[in-house]
Design a protein around this nucleic acid. Structure first.
Lengths: 346, 346
DNA sequence: CTGAAAGCGCTTACAG
DNA sequence: CTGAAAGCGCTTACAG
């Protein structure tokens, strides 16, 4: 992109007001050490002229940064767009800008985006996407973020990441246990779990919760088929095809996010399987459309928009000696997509 | 936010490599005028040290800006998150960052966000939200954007806006006509239109298309109830309540976006009205979940992600004497939510 | 091919 | 309370 030709500068405003650069600067940044009268005149003139400060110059000169970097796996995934909504809304209220980048669930690319945000000298970096179970995968990113923090940058993450930073922790394990218990309590024993990539901590934690609930029933997760596909609508749709073709007797499908559950429902519908009559389906997240599906989706609610606000709020507070952690809580939302397990015969 | 303490600077790299600042700068920006050998050494050292250039300094010194501003009404609305997905993805490939802000469908706030983007010296501003039918409402924003363009900034918009700029034009009128014709061809004559705020050009254009289709049937839009509520799921749900309570004999509801259609479907379901048995429902946009609703939603497809890529592509090309305009095309997607009008008796 | 120097537009000690 | 000056970290003519 080309460069923008010189717009109005602060000197122009200062000249017009008949004051020095320094005074004009103080007046506009609301710093004291200027008489109210002069400050008002400068501000008035700045407004008249339509002056807007060059934030690059301001930041370079030592002013505070006013932009926050937000890394999501994919902004067009409702889980992330709802989180981003919370972040952007709060940022707007605080006069901050937010730079969004995709990691595309690729650690390499995520590292690249982190570097890019650092180059842009954002004051805050928020990592909203899931962490990875293998610390090695994120070692470089972790080092980069740690260095950023040492230099005074603030980092806050959503989920379990290897980097030491303030964190909003979705109730993944508890939620996984809750929804699994729900299915078990309905009498389901032939449950298939439709999961995203094994390397994500989000998946690992939700699965751990499911395992715990099964344990409590004297069942083992090892006896339950877990299909790992894309953590998306299409991943869910594919998994459901596989289940219908290969896993006889399934009475319930537990998808580890709503996107996958939507794909599952779609496949079941097109294959003529009634939900929950023949197979119950549950999801995770409670994206806003979950309530409007037919049948409406039983799921675990995570307060995404609020999580976005919380993670930014944390990042905006000065860093503490020990990183802050905040659990989101969760709520099992029982809707129409789950029902009693059908009995084998009769 | 506080400031970030000094990270590695270009001089550090230059010193380490035993070259001048100028040479180091040339080497890293890939400009020629440096021997390959020296350039390689500098790059190698920069990599080793983990150097990342300060983009504020770079931009201030006259380098090109590498960030694009994107204004959406609301990022957690699937229409916008899909557009944003296209923009962010392409930007990532091009090594650009994107700053997202909400306008919240408030022209005042939109103006504020535009000013903010300009202060950040973005090279490009993309306005993805609908324009306003009353030019006065956006006069200030228009002036601000025009000034930005005169100063060398690039502007591209989605939809009909009063500012003179490159534009991606959604096929709103044609799409409105197509979906209305579809309902008419199914025999519907008692159609109610569920629309968003009248002041948006998106609404005006879609309505104009509907009016044209009605005209062709010798019907007038004036004889068709048009309910203006929020352009959201809840707006649609409320409108549907009103229709069921107050507009007897309705056989089809045409919602002017999918979010509203989802709200309409939800209300009809909870009120026990069968779709399309008793009432047909159609939407507009084809957000990704539209195909997965039950009944799946008849709608007009707009290629949102592609629109995002196109609008950024336009913005990245040098400005032309006459603004470029590109129609999106549209496609009527007939699914299960629309069917023949029920006959009055028997 | 390489370097010394000016300049981008601000902010902030330092004097007064 | 106000101003002159240095400096933030780069890029880019201008010399050599």
């Amino acid at each position: 992109m080309g460069r923008t030709r010189s717009a109005l500068r602060l000197v122009d405003v200062a000249d017009r007001a008949g004051v020095s650069l320094a005074t004009a600067s103080r007046a506009l940044s609301g710093r004291d050490g200027v008489s109210e009268e002069v400050a008002d005149r400068v501000r008035e003139i700045a407004r008249e002229l339509g002056y807007v400060a060059n934030l690059h110059a301001r930041t370079l000169a030592g002013g505070a940064t006013s932009t926050v970097g937000l890394i999501v796996h994919e902004i067009d995934d409702p889980y992330f767009s709802e989180i981003a909504g919370g972040v952007v809304r709060l940022a707007g209220e605080q006069g901050l800008m937010v730079q969004i980048c995709h990691s595309g669930r690729d650690p390499e690319f995520e590292l690249h985006e982190i570097r890019s945000l650092i180059a842009h000298r954002v004051g805050v970096i928020i990592v909203a996407g899931s962490g990875y179970t293998d610390p090695k995968v994120q070692a470089a990113a972790k080092a980069e973020l740690a260095r950023f923090q040492e230099a005074g940058g603030r980092v806050a993450v959503i989920g379990r990441h290897s980097v030491t930073a303030d964190a909003v922790l979705p109730d993944n394990e508890e939620g996984g246990a809750a929804v699994a218990e729900h299915l078990l309590s309905l009498g389901h024993r032939k449950i298939v779990v439709v999961a995203g990539p094994q390397r994500l901590t989000t998946i690992a934690d939700r699965l751990a919760g499911v395992a715990r609930a099964l344990d409590a029933q004297g069942m083992s997760i090892d006896a339950v088929p877990v299909l790992h596909t894309d953590f998306t609508r299409n991943g869910g749709a594919e998994a459901a095809e596989k289940i219908l073709d290969q896993v006889a007797g399934t009475t319930a499908i537990l998808a580890l996010n709503d996107a996958m559950a939507i794909g599952v429902l779609s496949t079941l519908r097109s294959r003529g399987v009634s939900v929950p009559g023949q197979i119950s389906v549950a999801g995770f997240d409670d994206v806003s459309v979950a309530a409007d599906l037919a049948p409406s989706l039983t799921t675990v609610r995570l307060p995404m928009a609020q999580m976005g606000e919380q993670v930014l709020t944390m990042a905006l507070r000065p860093s503490s000696t020990r990183p802050r952690r905040k659990s989101t809580g969760h709520e099992l939302i029982v809707r129409d997509s789950t029902g009693p397990a059908r009995t084998r015969r009769g």
